[in-house]
Write a protein that binds this DNA or RNA. Structure first.
Lengths: 249, 249
DNA sequence: CCAAAAGTGTTGAAGTTACACCCATGC
DNA sequence: GCATGGGTGTAACTTCAACACTTTTGG
């Protein structure tokens, strides 16, 4: 038996371990999260993109593969949140019947490893495929329910994001190459879910030296055009690695 | 088949999912970690206490059960670190042959969910049982190698601990009921792995109001006896929940 | 000229770091 | 009386929160 496993390991889905991805995007106003709809028959039932892993696959690779298979997003840097999975994870009837339709062992105990990431929405137009009938960005605050324990996972991802942004300059993945400080400001407010003083915010960001101002301004806006900024990638990478102890918002 | 699973779910070990526990203790000088030795024949091979989960078990409960089975430690508060488990996790021959001897499916892909905790060493005398032939406290800094990917897990646990202690008053689980500020000081230095200024440390701790001084002093020490302190449990719980943004060591 | 968002400085309070000496005890 | 760790205060500096008005553009 062990020989068989070695022969075609890539082809063996592991019935007990899955991955789920929480992908955050920002539309210059609020946080969004990428969800899929898994079937058209039973009405809308949003879920996080996720599926079983292969036996021979790293967890991180599985997360990337599954995300690409379901939504078309490729080569995203994903960070692990942790493992989830009550024995009673399948509490909704809709979840159970859906599993019956696509899984070889629909009753198997599944534990799922959750990942999260931040992407620029403009760069990624989700393309549903596999068992996803649609893939969409939905505002985080409008989500009331998700399949399985995905709502709980989403809450954990939000909490992790809040924590991370205080110790690493993480939010920049959510903005386009050129951006204004107001956009960055709004992003931080959206993630931390509280208002931040404009002047103090700008001071703080600028002191970190992770942005530099371009010689370019907005145009076509019906108000004073804003200075555009970009990231100082060097400084950014340095800080991403060392982190900062203390970016107290 | 699904009926069978429902009948005796507690008895089914899941071949693909395990838990491992990193238990830290403090001996007033350095950090220690609780490890087991899994067999006497092949020389010493330390491992973290861990084993497969049951199909019907919560992950957290599995971690507690396994810890108790192997070391006798009961009812420990365990916090999840995350999931680990390369497909190539079993790289050492000793790991492979050991698995052959105790597992029904020794070649199965295993992902493991790691937990960590902090305990007062004096309260827990490890009692090896099950496949553990011994269970001991070993200084963290003396550990160079562990079974499977346990060394990597230990590193992650240390990192998590460092991070946690900055945002939550966590270290108190490692000290006895009555303790001196110097002991606490040493503990923080051990966890953060760097020296901290004595006066500043004391000021900071006292401002948090999580310790209060007893009307009691050390005795029998060959130097000025130290004031003894205890935790202000109320304040402690409050802070554990809210966290503090900024306990900048 | 009006609406809309951009941009800018100061002040008082709180927190941070660095640093050196005397004290109480057991032996 | 000596070795050992216990215990304490201050000054210079940095960081933090709070706060209001002027500027530039499009329409």
């Amino acid at each position: 038996m062990s020989k068989e496993i070695k022969k075609k390991p890539q082809l063996e889905l592991n019935p007990n371990v899955s991955v789920d991805c929480v992908i955050f995007g920002f539309d210059f106003d609020k946080l969004n999260v990428l969800v899929i709809n898994r079937s058209e028959k039973e009405g809308i039932q949003w879920a996080l993109p996720g599926n079983l892993i292969y036996d021979a696959e790293h967890l991180d690779e599985a997360a990337n593969r599954v995300l690409e298979e379901l939504t078309g997003l490729k080569k995203i840097y994903l960070e692990q949140i942790g493992a989830f999975g009550d024995p009673n994870r399948i509490s909704k009837e809709s979840d159970r019947s859906w599993l019956q339709s696509i899984r070889a062992q629909p009753e198997a105990r599944v534990i799922t490893v959750a990942y999260f990431s931040l992407v620029k929405m403009e760069d990624y137009q989700p393309q549903p495929s596999s068992f996803a009938t649609s893939a969409e960005w939905i505002p985080v605050n409008e989500i009331r329910e998700l399949a399985f324990d995905h709502f709980e996972i989403l809450q954990a991802a939000k909490a992790r994001l809040k924590q991370m942004i205080k110790i690493r300059p993480i939010g920049f993945n959510l903005l386009p190459e050129k951006f204004t400080l107001s956009q960055l400001h709004k992003l931080y407010e959206a993630i931390l879910d509280k208002p931040l003083d404009k002047r103090n915010f700008r001071r703080k960001i600028q002191k970190l030296k992770i942005v530099y101002s371009l010689k370019e301004k907005q145009s076509g806006v019906p108000h004073k055009p804003s200075q555009l900024f970009s990231f100082n990638t060097e400084h950014y990478l340095e800080l991403t690695q060392t982190g900062y102890d203390n970016f107290g918002f």
